[in-house]
């Protein structure tokens, strides 16, 4: 059942990404290009999503556990640290270069573009590289806990 939920959620997510215009790098750059002809559409994607997730997530917090599972899997950290900020800066730079973030990049694979496939493979390599660098760093300069975001 949980597997079915994951498939349904992913499918709805992918449909929303394409309908919202997120899978088109041109549309994304149009949104990020404030100084050009600014296309604010993608702000409505984030806004539309938050209109649903904000009330739902807040209500669920009162319930304490998910309907099918035993607990919510949430990140435990609360502090703002350098990896969070540095990682977000890097991610934003890459997003600005290609106009692709992880979800839309994967959904975009249905168009069969070799360059996008290259982006996704490079993205996985980048994640792997981060782990290599992080585990070589001295203790204390730690990686975030496993809790997935």
């Amino acid at each position: 059942m949980k597997a079915l939920v994951a498939l349904a959620s992913g499918t709805l997510f992918g449909m929303g990404l394409l309908l919202g215009g997120m899978t088109d790098p041109g549309k994304v750059i149009g949104f990020l290009d404030l100084a050009g002809r600014w296309d604010p559409s993608l702000a409505f994607v984030m806004g539309g999503a938050l209109c649903v997730t904000f009330p739902t997530f807040q209500l669920l917090r009162l319930r304490g556990r998910p309907l099918l599972g035993e607990r919510f899997y949430l990140p435990t950290r609360k502090d703002l640290d350098a990896p969070l900020l540095g990682g977000a800066v890097l991610f934003g730079v890459g997003w600005g270069i290609a106009g692709l973030c992880p979800g839309p990049a994967i959904a975009n694979l249905v168009f069969g573009s070799p360059e996008v496939l290259g982006f996704v493979v490079a993205m996985i390599a980048g994640m792997w590289l981060r782990d290599r660098v992080a585990t070589k760093a001295p203790p204390g300069a730690s990686n975030a806990p496993v809790a997935a975001t």
Binding site: K2, V5, A6, A8, S9, G10, T11, L12, F13, M15, G16, L17, L18, L19, G20, G21, M22, S41, L42, A43, F44, V45, M46, G47, G48, A49, L50, C51, V52, T53, T56, F57, L60, R65, P66, L67, L68, G69, E70, R71, F72, Y73, L74, A148, T149
Partner: peptide, 23 residues
């Protein structure tokens, strides 16, 4: 379309979190 697509993404995220407890 962006707003509706966004709402679909929101429903997808809400489904996964409310049923499976996953982000």
């Amino acid at each position: 379309r962006a707003g509706i697509g966004g709402a679909m993404i929101g429903i997808a995220a809400a489904l996964l979190f409310s049923l499976n407890g996953r982000i």
